[in-house]
Amino acid sequence: MTDWQKDVLTEALKEETINPKIIVSVLGKDRVGIIAEITAVIANLGGNIIDINQTIFRELFSMNMVIDISQTKEPFLQFKAQLEQKGQELGLMVMAQREDVFTKMHRV
């Protein structure tokens, strides 16, 4: 491993611990344009998507995103409220939760 690679790795790990992320989960009936609609809201609020996973189970649309909210204009609870309200308007179940609840529960 080169020094540069080591630096990147160290920085990335440090970033993970000092800058907690949130997870946004979206569930609903599949149709065209869901990702575009949801990500547009996140972009408007200043959230940075750093990981995204999307799949369809039969007709059920399921998407999970890891989002960095350190640059958002508003605190997390307001970010969450706006996102969830948008979900209601679109007829989707949208949930935003702090990432550490998942890592604590599913990692030893």
Binding site: I23, S25, L27, D51, N53, T55, S62, N64, V66, M95, E99, V101, F102, T103, M105, H106, R107
Partner: peptide, 13 residues
Amino acid sequence: MRITSQEILETIK
């Protein structure tokens, strides 16, 4: 390792 979709869905369930 990032949390998987299955783990997220399990928690929501």
